[in-house]
Design a protein around this nucleic acid. Structure first.
Lengths: 191, 191
DNA sequence: TGTAAGTTAGTTAATAATCACTAACTTAAT
DNA sequence: ATTAAGTTAGTGATTATTAACTAACTTACA
C-alpha cells in the first residue's frame, strides 16, 4: 500500500462521510486529491478496488477486537461492555465506514463487494457470540436467551443508533448514546 | 390515484424487490409496464414522486397498527407481540418496502425523500413507545429500562433480521424467525 | 344530432448530464 | 534510458427528462 493509495482511500472515506456513498465519484475523488481522474487509475485498477480497499481497512480493525478476547482474566460482561464501547468509538471516528458497511443495498449488484460486507458482518458477529457464550458459561449473562439472539439484539441496536446518528447529521454524541445503550442492555442481560 | 398510477407503483415495487433500488430506472419501469418511458411522465411528475408514492403506501399502513392500539382490553405485552408479528408479516409480504425504507443512504441527497423516511421511522417508533409505556404502567414490562431504549432495541433487531433476510435472498422464513425473536425479547423485558 | 374544442395517454426522437474508464502523450526522477 | 505518475482529450454507456406530435375519447354547444 503506497502513500498515494492510502491517500486515495482516506479521501474516498471523507467524500462518503460528507456526501454519502453517491458522493464517491471518480471526478469528486480526483478533485479532492488534486489530480485528474486517470491519475487515480494508476493506483487502483477500478472503483470497485477502492471500495474493497475501504472495506479492508475495516476488516483489519477486527484484529484489535480479538486482542482483548484472548485476555481471559477479565469478566465477559466487562469484555462485552468494552466491545460495545469500542464499536461506538470506532464509528464516531469513522463515519464513512458506517455509510459503507450499512449500505448493503448498494452492493447488491456487485457480488464481490456484497460478499465482503457479508463476511465482515459475520466475523463481527462471531466475536459477540463468543463473549456472550463465555458469559453464559460463567453465569454472568442470562442463559434463557441464546447467545445468537442476544448478539442479534445488540448488533441491531448498535446499527440503528449509528444510522440515526448519521441521518441526524451527527447531531448528538454517539459515544454517550452508546454508553447509555450499554446500561440498558446490561440490565436486561446480566444475571 | 388512477389505475395506471397504482400500476406504476406496484411495478416499481416489484422491480426494487427483484433488482434492488438501483434496478428502478425509468427504462426498466417502462419495459415492465409495457409502455415507453415518456408515458410514465403522464402519470408521475418525476421519479422522486414515484418513490414518494411508494413511501406513502407504507405510511397508510400505520392506520392498521393504530387500530388495535385503541383496543385497551388486551394486555400491552400481547399488543406488543401482535405489533412485532405484524411488522414481520408485512415485510415478508412486501420485500420491496423494506428495500426502500431501509436504504436511507440512497436518499441522503434528496431532502424530501429522506425527511419522509425519517418521519415514517418516527411515527413507527411512537406506536412502540406508547405500548411499552402502557405495559410499564401496568407492571407487565420492566421499568428499569426506559420505553425509548426498549423500542430502540426491538426496532433495531427487527431491522437487522429483515436486512439479513433480504441479503440472504429471502432464504429463510422471516415470520418464523420473527416469532423466535419475540420469544427472546419477551423473556428479556417482561416482569 | 353533428361538430368544434379539449383532454388523456401514448409515441418517436432528442437532450443534457453524469458515469466509469482508456489511449496516447508528457514529465520528472532514478 | 527506463519507469512511475501525471496530463489531455476522449469514449461509450446510462441516466432522468423534455419536445413535438398523434390517435382516441369526451364534453359543450348550435
Amino acid at each position: 500500500m503506497t502513500q498515494r493509495q492510502s491517500e486515495i482511500l482516506q479521501e474516498s472515506i471523507k467524500l462518503i462521510a460528507d456526501k454519502g456513498i453517491q458522493g464517491l465519484t471518480m471526478k469528486n475523488l480526483a478533485n479532492a486529491i488534486g489530480v485528474t481522474e486517470p491519475a487515480i487509475y494508476r493506483h487502483f485498477e477500478n472503483k470497485q478496488k477502492i471500495l474493497l480497499g475501504i472495506l479492508s481497512l475495516f476488516e483489519n480493525n477486527k484484529e484489535i477486537f480479538s486482542k482483548f478476547l484472548q485476555d481471559e482474566t477479565s469478566n465477559p460482561l466487562e469484555q462485552l461492555k468494552l466491545l460495545v464501547k469500542m464499536r461506538f468509538k470506532y464509528f464516531a471516528k469513522n463515519r464513512a465506514i458506517a455509510s459503507v458497511i450499512f449500505s448493503e443495498e448498494l452492493f447488491r449488484n456487485d457480488p464481490l463487494l456484497s460478499e465482503k460486507v457479508f463476511e465482515i458482518m459475520k466475523e463481527n458477529q462471531k466475536i459477540f457470540v463468543q463473549i456472550i457464550k463465555a458469559g453464559q458459561k460463567l453465569s454472568v449473562i442470562k442463559k434463557d436467551v441464546t447467545a445468537d439472539q442476544l448478539t442479534l439484539i445488540i448488533i441491531g441496536a448498535i446499527r440503528l443508533i449509528v444510522t440515526k446518528w448519521r441521518l441526524s447529521g451527527c447531531s448528538f454524541n454517539l459515544e454517550k448514546e452508546g454508553a447509555y445503550f450499554w446500561k440498558s442492555i446490561e440490565i436486561l442481560i446480566k444475571i
